[in-house]
Every structure is written in C-alpha cells, then in structure tokens.
Computed example of a mutant assay.
Amino acid sequence: MSDKFSREIARMRRIEGQARGIAKMMEEDRYCIDILQQFAAMEAALRSARMEVLKIHASHCLEEAIELGSKGDQRAKIAELIALLEKQAR
C-alpha cells in the first residue's frame, strides 16, 4: 500500500461501507429522509477525500515538477490540474 495514500485508502474503505449501508437501507425500505441524510454524509466524506488527494498531488507531483521538471513539464502539470478543477466545477 502506498504510504502517501494510506489514510485516504482507509477513508475510501469507510466510504465503501457507507455505500453498502445506504444500499441496505434502501433494500429495507427505510425512511427516505434517513437515506438522503446518509447520501449527504457520504458525499461530504468523498469531497474531503478528494481534497486530501488534491493536497497530496500538490505536495508531491506538482512540487516535484517544479523542483525537477522542465518548464514544459511544469506547464503540463498545472494545465492538467486546471482542467480537472474546471471539469469538477461543472
């Protein structure tokens, strides 16, 4: 397991458990508001995990490109990040 992602992998496993829990709630025909609240909790956990991976990317991949890469590599990494953020904003 990658050290830089170990905490996020654990977090994703908890989110996976949340998804299974939501499916079980739906199978049990639980109250819709309760199910929707669990969706909101899972979405918040996913957003948090995504932000942590973004921080890891900035502190590892981007930092490495800035320190070791050529100007072209640096521009490519930054353009890649901007494209991703634009896509997520839609």
Rank of each mutant, 00 (worst) to 15 (best):
M1T: 11
M1Q: 11
M1K: 14
S2G: 07
K4H: 12
F5C: 03
F5E: 01
S6G: 04
S6H: 07
E8N: 11
E8A: 10
I9T: 05
A10N: 14
R11Y: 06
R11M: 00
R11L: 05
R13G: 03
R13P: 04
R14I: 12
I15K: 08
E16G: 05
G17A: 00
G17W: 12
G17L: 05
Q18L: 08
Q18G: 03
Q18E: 04
Q18I: 11
Q18D: 02
A19V: 15
R20L: 02
R20E: 05
G21P: 04
G21W: 00
G21Y: 05
I22A: 04
I22E: 01
A23M: 15
A23L: 13
A23N: 08
K24P: 08
K24Q: 13
M26I: 13
M26N: 08
M26D: 05
E27F: 12
E28S: 02
E28M: 02
D29L: 09
D29P: 13
R30P: 14
R30C: 09
R30Q: 13
R30V: 06
R30Y: 04
C32L: 04
C32D: 05
C32G: 05
I33L: 07
D34A: 10
D34H: 15
D34I: 08
D34G: 15
I35M: 00
I35R: 00
L36H: 15
L36S: 15
Q37P: 11
Q38V: 02
F39M: 07
A40F: 09
A41C: 08
A41P: 06
A41D: 15
M42Y: 04
M42N: 13
M42E: 06
E43T: 13
A44Y: 10
A45V: 10
A45M: 06
A45Y: 11
L46Q: 04
L46R: 01
L46W: 01
R47H: 10
S48C: 01
R50N: 15
R50V: 07
M51W: 10
M51I: 11
M51F: 10
M51Y: 09
E52R: 06
V53C: 13
V53Q: 05
K55G: 04
K55R: 14
K55M: 09
H57T: 03
H60V: 12
C61I: 05
C61F: 07
L62W: 00
E64Q: 12
A65S: 06
A65W: 10
I66M: 03
I66L: 06
I66K: 04
E67W: 08
L68P: 06
G69T: 02
G69F: 00
G69N: 03
G72D: 15
G72W: 08
D73Q: 02
Q74N: 13
R75D: 14
A76W: 12
A76I: 13
A76L: 09
K77G: 11
I78L: 02
I78Q: 00
A79L: 11
A79W: 07
A79V: 07
L81Q: 09
L81W: 09
L84K: 02
L84A: 06
L84S: 04
L85R: 09
L85I: 04
Q88L: 15
Q88T: 15
A89I: 10
A89Y: 10
A89T: 14
R90H: 15
